[in-house]
Amino acid sequence: MKQGFIHKCSIASQLLISCLQLSTDLAADSNFRNIPAAQLQQSYTWYDGDIKREVWVNPQLIAEFNPTISQKNQISAAVTGAQVVSAKMGPVRFWQVNDTINAKTAISSISKRMNSNQISAVLHDGASTLSAMRAIPGNIIIYLDPGWDQATATQWLAQKNLQVVSQRQFMPNVFVIKSIPGLESLLMANKLYESGEVVAAFPNWWKELVTK
């Protein structure tokens, strides 16, 4: 069973034709994750609370969130040779760019063309394309000092020019902050965490998950 299809083809259906048929439909992308691992050279740090974690950029994959037909046409027009290479995993459709174009360059080209930015780099939890994938659909989550009162928290957010999307129920001073999809959100979260002014700051990760 191919990794990219695990979400659809859990162990529940290993012998089912419905699952096999899905694989057939997507025969073209059977190797979309098998980019030689040596090419996964660029990594980023992110902060899972106070634990530092590392993720590796896939140089040939792009994640498109909430795909539409018009968006598909725009991406195809922006990046020569870009191909959809997987079934949708949750809200994400994956594109592979050809060897001569780096995913970062492709994202930059797409962003210039598209009004609505729904594109993210694809990252892996390990330095292998077979490791779990992540992407950033936009927004970061920050945990401020739970001892702050609401006014202090609000004032701090305003000072930093952070736009609040929502405030977490149940947890004092945890906010979802507006940010664009992709690595910019990761860098923004890191900057906030490294400032020492927040308890936690991390992107609103989309993460590869499977049914069991």
């Binding site: 949750g90 979802v176 993460k207």
Partner: peptide, 8 residues
Amino acid sequence: FLQVGDMT
């Protein structure tokens, strides 16, 4: 949730 898959 698995149709969206993000932290929020």
